[in-house]
């Protein structure tokens, strides 16, 4: 079994296990919170492709997420588009936007990419909240084109209420699980394919990569486009799942929360983002009662992780495995270098 087959099998196994949760737990809160975990895990798994594998410090992921969410909400609100159709449209729009952003970032390095992508997100945010002109005037009050500070609600549903009655949230749970599973499998395939190798090579040494036939231009656009699809789709699903979309999706503290998931779990590793998302969401849940102390607690976790495990939990695990194989290899010396 290749590493790729192993990872995909593991992923399907975990998904299978996760699929059992609504059957064994009838606590609605647990199920809906896990649905949110699927959404955020999808976002960080795809963000990891850009940030971890490609080494491009883009902070545009929440803007892409917002594009997916807003497109879906607006299509439903203004045109009554079915959510099944509106969701992939939102995802595709996020892809287009991301590719354009990738073009804009082509000549930039490191922190400048972070600045530019953050600025773009801010411009989107400000455009939305500063728009006070009424585009339509429904009974509920003035509605700016993109919802203004209020945002959108009642724009559509996936139809689980009719189908499942009071258990509708279970239907959404499985949609979320399906999106995360596919996003994860795509991420595994990309990382463990020639394309993922090119991303990593360009991250490690762009000048040398060019001398080995890898074009930075081409692969930067690929990586921006690829990672945007599921990010946008996660946004679309978030809109449908919460039934409301507002400028809060641009929140900077939430962006940092997601970034911390990748860092704690292991930047550039296959399983790191998911592990990080799971851990930090559990931690946040556990500290729910603590009020303001919660932020301090989260900060503390981040600091401890960065200091003790610079490569994250999964990175540390990989290092340990490597170290052990190296030790066993030393114990049984192999004829290493043949004479030429």
């Amino acid at each position: 079994m290749t590493a790729r087959q192993r990872d995909i099998t593991l992923c399907l196994l975990f998904s299978g296990l996760a699929a059992l949760l609504p059957l064994v737990s009838d606590v609605r809160y647990t199920v809906t919170q896990t649905t949110f975990f699927f959404i955020w895990a999808t976002v960080v798994v795809q963000w990891n492709l850009v940030f971890g594998i490609g080494g491009i410090f883009s902070l545009a992921q929440m803007a892409l997420f917002a594009i997916g969410a807003y497109t879906t909400a607006m299509l439903g609100y203004y045109f009554g588009t079915s959510m099944i159709l509106a969701m992939p449209i939102g995802a595709l729009l996020a892809v287009l936007f991301s590719v354009a952003l990738g073009l804009a970032c082509l000549k930039l390095r490191g922190p400048y990419v972070a600045l530019l992508t953050l600025c773009v997100a801010q411009v989107l945010y400000l455009t939305i909240v500063n728009d006070t002109d009424c585009f339509t005037n429904p009974p509920s009050g003035c509605m700016p084109l993109m919802g203004g500070v209020r945002g959108f609600s009642r724009f559509g549903d996936l139809g689980f209420r009719e189908l499942l009655g009071s258990g509708f949230y279970v239907g959404r749970y499985y949609v979320g699980l399906a999106i995360l599973t596919v996003a994860m499998i795509v991420s595994i395939i990309v990382i463990r394919s020639p394309m993922g190798l090119a991303f990593q090579a360009l991250r490690d040494n762009p000048v040398y990569a060019a001398a080995r036939g890898m074009d930075r231009f081409k692969y930067q656009l690929w990586i921006f486009g690829l990672s945007a699809f599921f990010t946008g789709l996660a946004g679309s699903f978030y809109a449908v799942n919460t039934g409301a979309v507002g400028p809060v999706v641009f929140s900077f503290s939430h962006l940092l929360f997601l970034l911390s998931m990748i860092i704690v779990g292991g930047v550039g590793t296959i399983w790191g983002p998911i592990v990080g998302a799971l851990l930090l969401m559990f931690a946040e849940e556990a500290m729910r009662e603590l009020g303001d102390m919660r932020d301090i607690g989260m900060g503390l976790i981040l600091v401890v992780c960065v200091v003790l495990m610079p490569r994250g939990i999964v990175g540390l695990f990989e290092d340990l495995v490597r170290w052990r194989t190296a030790r066993t290899a030393q114990a049984v010396p192999l004829p290493r270098r043949e004479t030429v």
Binding site: S193, L197, Q200, A209, G213
Partner: peptide
């Protein structure tokens, strides 16, 4: 020079895959 975070084999694999001809759309394997 090398791709430091890649294994020895992957270093050679990328060169073998991308170095000989232009890959318009990179394959899955």
């Amino acid at each position: 020079t090398g791709f430091d975070s890649l294994s020895v084999r992957d270093n050679v694999r990328v060169a073998a895959y991308y170095g000989r001809r232009n890959r318009v759309v990179p394959g899955i394997s």
